[in-house]
Design a protein around this nucleic acid. Structure first.
Lengths: 362, 362
DNA sequence: TTGTAAGCGTTATCAT
DNA sequence: ATGATAACGCTTACAA
């Protein structure tokens, strides 16, 4: 553990018997150098185990070769995958990623951006609670730092990589309506801190109206309910009339099925469930999850690509929303005709028909 | 987009009509200053929107306040959660996290460490393909940089946060043996690049021997098989005699159930399945997954805590392995007596007994 | 082709 | 209490 004193370019130059400028030129291939000195410098660098200090470089070049990344949480695989996408694109480009998580807290968001700015990240890729009113983000923009948002719908002067949550949610309403569902619910976690969630509800609500369905019931829950099926079941029990629930993400969609089971409700016979995101596991389940399939990884990739373009001086424009697709699954079926406002729990199983769109109900 | 030229402490000093040293002292509360000049400096800083450059500071103090983090992938929630744990602990301490992913590639691992070292991270927290033979990691150690490994079993001179994979795997063998399973398999993805996977197999194998069971069949698969149930089914079909499979992670455990279903095998009647990790979703499934429950988040937290201790000059010793627990589930049951070497597919369902340990078979 | 020196933003030392 | 000034490690004029 002999704290090796750091080798600087000065040491290399000294060891090679030349000036630091020459050493720099050789090591960077950035200028002329005789074969002789080139040889000596390279050998010295090798023998001393020299490597450049990114700090020194950053200070002098005013470019840190670092991209700041802020997401609400890595425990949510959707964000983890997006970050993975960012990382994948950045990997070859020489940029490193400074990461931060806000835990869905707006104040933490702002503080994190400030930290990233202080670290002089060359660009920012973020998903925030409220990007629109983050002073730090505004400052970043004023400084002219390239910024790419992820997951957010287009916003004044920012570039964003996203799926059209509103449109996607409308598709879910269409599926429900097509099968004849009328009493629907929207299950949301962190509704207040997630514009995605809000937009999904808005789209769902809007299309329900268009199709002449009653307004969907908005069921907001907290962390506790999301993780404890019995608590969620208690909440679910308050809405016995619902025949279909749109969960704002796949994890919730799986959790609500568990809760339904606790209540003795069968999915999809007594309750249809559709999720959002399209996580891989949904596909592998015994009862494959009907959901809106998206690609967070692609989102991250696109965001990072835009960033790189901007970092190279290119102009970037807002790209269209990334594609989504409704993925059929065994959790969505016709509503149970027995399931009136209090007829829940009929023991007669309804046939396990494949989901087949009906004419809309007007 | 008026590229605001960066405000330095020099600007503040000038605007406040004092020297930079004084400004620094005031802004850092690191020395004496008259109330008068203090006032002026603070106002100037506020009005100019000054914030310190971490780069300048890092250069002068030789501490970047940055921790380097390297994991194989963030797409694997186990690593994502660990990183989240690291982040959570680091958050309050003023350290930021520079992150990198290797995609399970040893060469990328080494390159990533080199990058992190060049960026002068003050410490390293990593999970690598082969930490033992990474030149860059060795260099880091030689430099005296605090290093915490995650997921790896204890290794020569490194501190690591881990669960005892060998012991945990033995527990699975015990469960299988206790129920009377004899023909078992170990399903592994990326066996060659994961010491976790190898240690789990070793423990499983060892305990099978101890209990007098035949050696477990090692079934190695690639990404393709892991993601395409039909391919996995084809592989599974080559092992019709197995009555129990230990999957090296929960995702695989869920995938193998899907594959079994495709073959018409029932879980757990025809095939018992136990996973590893204890991801949350396993609990919510219709057929809750039997698994070894661990806490990657706690792993990340512990690793980060050790790092902070070391960064504060404290001495840190290797802590004992983090706890794991066998989590019972509906995917584990008695072997089907009908299920001889080619009797698979018996249509008679066996009773769905709760998993109840038997005497060991010798 | 090469070396000297200025400057990037900060803090610590040392006079004043 | 305050302000020059010298580092920190690097690149880039500019001179030689």
């Amino acid at each position: 553990m002999s704290k090796t004193t750091n080798i600087t370019i000065k040491d290399v130059a000294q060891s090679a018997g030349c000036g630091v400028a020459t050493a720099s030129r050789v090591l960077n291939n950035s200028g002329p150098a005789s074969a002789d000195v080139r040889e000596r410098v390279e050998r010295a660098a090798r023998e001393l185990g020299f490597s450049f200090s990114a700090i020194g470089r950053a200070l002098q070049s005013r470019r840190s070769m670092t991209v700041g990344c802020l997401v609400p949480s890595l425990a949510n695989p959707v964000f983890a995958e997006a970050v993975q996408g960012v990382q994948a694109v950045l990997l070859g480009s020489g940029y490193q990623m400074l990461i931060s998580c806000s835990n869905y807290d707006a104040a933490a968001d702002d503080a994190a951006i400030e930290m990233l700015l202080a670290k002089k990240t060359d660009a920012l890729v973020t998903t925030m609670v409220d990007p629109d009113r983050s002073p730090a983000l505004r400052l970043a923009k004023k400084r002219g730092i390239p910024i790419s948002l992820m997951f957010h719908d287009p916003l004044d002067g920012f570039i964003t990589s996203y799926v059209d949550n509103f449109e996607a949610a409308k598709e879910v309403a269409r599926q429900f309506a097509g099968l004849g569902h009328r009493r629907t619910g929207f299950l949301a976690l962190r509704f207040s801190t997630s514009d995605r969630s809000r937009n999904r509800y808005a789209g769902f609500h809007s299309e329900c109206r268009t199709r002449g369905l009653p307004d969907p019931v908005l069921i907001e829950i907290g962390e506790a309910e999301a993780n404890q099926p019995d608590l969620l079941a208690a909440i679910l029990a308050q809405h016995p009339a619902l025949t279909a629930i749109f969960a704002s993400n796949d994890f919730l969609a799986i959790a609500v099925q568990k809760a339904a089971r606790l209540l003795g409700w069968r999915v999809p016979q007594d309750l249809s469930v559709v999720g959002f995101d399209g996580i891989e596991i949904g596909r592998l389940l015994e009862k494959p999850l009907a959901t809106i399939e998206t690609s967070p990884e692609a989102m991250g990739r696109q965001a990072a690509s835009s960033l790189l373009t901007m970092l190279q001086g290119g102009d970037t424009v807002q790209l269209p929303a990334l594609p989504f697709a409704f993925r059929a699954g065994a959790t969505l079926a016709l509503p149970n005709p027995e399931n009136g406002d209090d007829g829940r729990g009929a023991t007669r199983p309804s046939p396990d028909l494949p989901a087949e769109p009906h004419a809309q109900q007007g």
